[in-house]
Amino acid sequence: MAILPGWLDPSHLIQSTGSWAVVVVMAILFAECGLLIGFFLPGDTLLFIAGLFVAEGSLRINLVLFIALLWVAAFAGNMVGYAIGYKVGPAVFRRPDAKFLKPEYIERSQAFFDRYGKVTVVLARFVPVVRTVATVMAGASRMNVRIYTVYSAIGGLLWVAAVTLAGYFLGQIDFVKNNVDVIFVAAVVIVVLVSAVPALLHMAQRRRAGRP
């Protein structure tokens, strides 16, 4: 958070927007979850601080209603990101002069989402940047829209509820409040390691079988 401009500091955002704070938080979650340009937005920290402010009374809104509104924003963002990837992705990857966005990348992504799509959509919610990119790649890879919708809704609810409630109940502990960034970095590392286990096991199986 220290490298971000002051106006992106979650505490400053919520305090400076007054009665529009809930709308601003929803807009930021929507952008981070659905628009590639929103990958730098502080979704996790924003949810945590927002939960803390609700507990303190600085943000006057019913906690359950607040979580529901944030979930709607995150879910809507993911669906928009999926639609963007579905519509624009294949054309971008099929460009003959593409040096980095090659057609085989979309084929690999499609095979990946066919096999691990459900888990990926849920776990990606908890990893900054990945949650922004994964939703667009799911659309570009033509992941089944019904499956994507269901697991996007589940992942969005788990992410929003878990982080907001953590801020609500744990944010008033001085150690937690003063080390939010470190805690989130540790949490992201754990999520990445856990999500990498299936891929590592798959690679090990292929090596034992003597396949490239």
Score class of each variant (00 low, 15 high):
P128K: 10
V182F: 15
A76F: 02
I14V: 09
G34D: 08
G18R: 05
L65I: 13
V64R: 10
L193G: 15
Y86M: 09
I84S: 14
N144Y: 06
Y151D: 03
T135H: 06
D114L: 12
R206F: 00
V194Q: 02
T45F: 09
A204W: 02
K102P: 10
A2L: 11
V191Q: 03
N179P: 03
P90S: 01
L47D: 11
V145Y: 04
E104G: 04
A162E: 07
G6P: 11
L157H: 09
A76G: 06
F184G: 03
V176L: 04
G139H: 06
A68Y: 02
I37C: 15
A140D: 13
V145D: 06
F75H: 12
R115P: 04
I14C: 06
F75N: 15
I147R: 09
R142H: 15
K99Q: 08
Y82G: 03
A138W: 00
A76N: 03
V64Y: 11
I37K: 14
L157V: 10
N178G: 06
A199M: 14
W71F: 07
F126C: 00
F40M: 00
L63G: 03
H202V: 07
D174P: 03
R95F: 14
K118E: 08
L35Q: 02
A138N: 07
V160N: 01
E104A: 10
V194S: 02
W7L: 10
V64M: 15
P10V: 04
V150M: 13
V22L: 11
A2C: 09
R95E: 13
D9C: 02
I37G: 14
L35E: 06
M79G: 05
